[in-house]
Amino acid sequence: MSEKSRSAVFTNGIIKENPVLVLVLGTCPTLATSTSIETGLGMGLAATAVLVCSNIVISLIRSLIPDKVRIPCFITVIAGFVTIVQMLLQAYVQPLYQALGLYLPLIVVNCIILGRAEMFASKNSTLDSTLDGLGMGLGFTLTLCIMGAIRELFGTGSLLAGDWFGLAKGFKGIPLFSRFMPGMSIMTMVPGGFFVYAIVMAAVHYFTKDKSKIRKDFSCAGCALAGSCSDEQKALEAGSCDKKEVR
C-alpha cells in the first residue's frame, strides 16, 4: 500500500468515518463518560489502547482463526487486553479507575473495537490495522473530549477541572461561565448526554458536504456482527428500513 493511502487509513477514523458521529458505534461509553474532559479523555485513551493492541494481535493471527468461530476469538483477545488495561489503571491511576467504574470492563462489548476487528483487522496487514486502530481510537477520543468540553462548560461553568491522572491534584478548572451564571447540572446528567450527542451529530451533518455518507438510520451496515447475522435478520433490517424510506 502506498504512503498516501496509509495516511488515508489513519485519518479515515478521525474525520470521514468517525466511529461515534458518523458510524454511530459505541454510544454507551460515549454518553456515559463524556461528563467532563478528564473522564472522556481517560475513556478514549483506554479504548484506543485496547483497540490498537487487539487490532495488531487479530491481524497477526487472522489466517489461523477458523471463520466460524472468529467472533468468540476476537472477543477473547479483546477481553484479554481490557483486563490488562483495567489492572494497569487500578494500579497506577486509581481516580480514573473509580470514575470509569463499570464502563471500563464494558470496553469489551464496545461495538467500535469488535467492529474494527471484524471489518478491518481480520482482512488487512498488521501495519494498516495498527494505523486504523490508532485513527479510530483518536476519533473516538476526540469526540469524547468535544462532548465532554461542552457538557462540562455548561454543566459546571468551568473547563478542564479534575485531578488529571494525579498530575494536578484538585484543579478547580478555568472558570469561563461560573462567574456570572451557575452550572446547569442537567448537562452532566443523563438527558444532557443525549442532547449534546444529538446536537454535535446534527452539526456534523450540517457541515458534511457529501450527504451520502450520513447514516440515515441504524442498519446492518454499521453493525459489528453484520457478517455473522443470519439472512432472516438482514431481511428484517431491510424490511424496516424500506418502511422508513417510503415516507
Binding site: P191, G192, F194, A198, A202, A203, H205, Y206, F218, R247
Partner: peptide, 25 residues
Amino acid sequence: EDQSRIPEPFRGVPIVLITAAILSL
C-alpha cells in the same frame, strides 16, 4: 416517522437522540 417537518441536519439519528433525551428527562 414522517420526518419532512424536521430540520435537515436533525433527520435520522439526531432526532432519535433528542427523543431519548426527553424520555430520560
